[in-house]
Structure formats: C-alpha cells, structure tokens
Amino acid sequence: MQFIDVDKVVFAYDNDEETGNTVLKEISLSIKKGEFVALLGHNGSGKSTLAKMFNGILLPDSGDVTVCGMNTKNDETLLDIRRKVGLVLQNPDNQLVASIVEEDVAFGPENLGIDPVEIRKRVDSALKAVDMYEYRDHAAYKLSGGQKQRVAIAGIIAMQPDCIVLDEPTAMLDPQGRQEVMDTIIKLNKEKKITIILITHYMDEAALADRLLILDNGTILTQGSPKEVFSKIELLKRHKLDVPQAAQLAYRLNSCGFKIDELPLNADDCVKMILAQIEKV
C-alpha cells in the first residue's frame, strides 16, 4: 500500500459526462511518503481538480482515492485524512481565516481539539518553519503575497500533516514571493520529510521536484524525473507546454553537435555542460 493511491478516478463537474465535462478520465497514480511530486498541465487539464481529491474536498464519481488506507469517501475518517493531507490554495487572500497571523495558524489545531499549551507550541514552531515568527502578531492582510502564502503553509504545518498539497501557490505572486514560497516548500520536504504535491505551471518550479507528472485533458501525458520529462521536448512543445530555457538551449546545441550526457535544468548546470564541451576539444 502506498501513502496515497489514486485508482481509476473519474470526475465530472455537473455529473454530466455526455457533454464532455469529464475533467479526470480514469486517472491512476500513487505517491510515496516523503516524495516531492510536481503536477503540471494547462488550465483545464484537471490538475486543480485532482489536487482537491487528495484530501476529500472533491470525491471521485468512480474510482477511489485512499490515504494511508483510508478512503476519502468514508465520512468517519475524513478528518483524519485532512489532518494528514493539508491543502494550500492559489489566492493568498482567500484562505486566511483570522485577522492576526498567529491566530490564523492556530485555526487548524483548534479544530482538532488540541490542548491550548500544545497549540501555542505548534503555532510557534510552524511560524518558525516558514520564517514568519517575527510577524506572529501582525495583521494578515498587510503582508505581502509571499508572506501570506507562507502563513497559509504554517497553518497547515501546525496540524502536523504528512503531506501538503499546494494548488498553484505561486501563480499570483511576484518573483520574490515565488522564491520565498519555493524555498519554504523545499525546506519542508528536505528537513521535515513532508510529502509535497505541487501543482504549478512554472517549469522552473517543477524542475525542483523528485518526480513530474504531466496532465493533459484529464489523463497523465507522461511522468518521470524532471530530466526524463524535459528531455521529451518535442512532446512537450506539441502540447504547448514550456521547457526550461537551459534545457531548450542544451537541446538546440545538441543538434549542432554538442554532446549532452545529462540534461541541464538550470543556468549553472548549463554553463558547466557547455564548458565541458568547449574545453574538452
């Protein structure tokens, strides 16, 4: 049994399959504990719908989603699932419940009926984990987008989850905010061993994941490590998806006689690759 299993999930909004509103078409995948998985795809590819399946916000029309053996269709274990799998949404303004940072972070643990002293501890450590501790008594609406998003993440961490699903958490942020959020996500994955499922359409963010799943029109188009997936440049281009510029450059150089042993996904690796080629001769 995997940590999260998605088995032949079909889902349509309006429950009207004839009109072609089927968003997910018999999708199956599984997520291991501690993994960092990125889900990529166009708007309308079904990636956000899939994100909401992991903690039972949406339930499959057919097929099953199980978390640690618990089916999301089972009402009795739903709270357990939501404690284990947290969800962070795209719009940083819409998911903070309380006006003050620390009070918002406390919201989840409070719902779980945890002892006040313990909540205090969890809130402090969650805020430290996302580097927002000194903002604990600030008004939430005055923070920058990146900071709000980190508070939202802290609100999930305070429930001590095994996994965080992030649905395009950086789509509405500026480059600095994006960087802050991505640094936080990676830190949580590496240091706290929290499983990360990141839904995004930024290729540079996806390149940081252990595994990449590309969704297209409700099915999985391809999956694998970022290097494997981005080496299928033709396939990605055909489906109008981006490829990191470093990988594009390497690919083009390859057709001009450069040898590529390993696909570079960022500028540094790409420079190294080019140097190796120039200096070898």
Binding site: P175, Q176, D204, P244, Q245, A246, L249, N266, A267, D268, C270, V271, I274, L275
Partner: peptide, 14 residues
C-alpha cells in the same frame, strides 16, 4: 534583485 532570463544568466556565466 530582478530576475533576468535564464539564457542571459548562462551567457553571463560563460
């Protein structure tokens, strides 16, 4: 603190 295109970064690196 501005992000420049990856390609420009590669050229600066070289």
């Amino acid at each position: 603190g501005l992000r420049i295109p990856e390609i420009t970064k590669i050229m600066i690196g070289l």
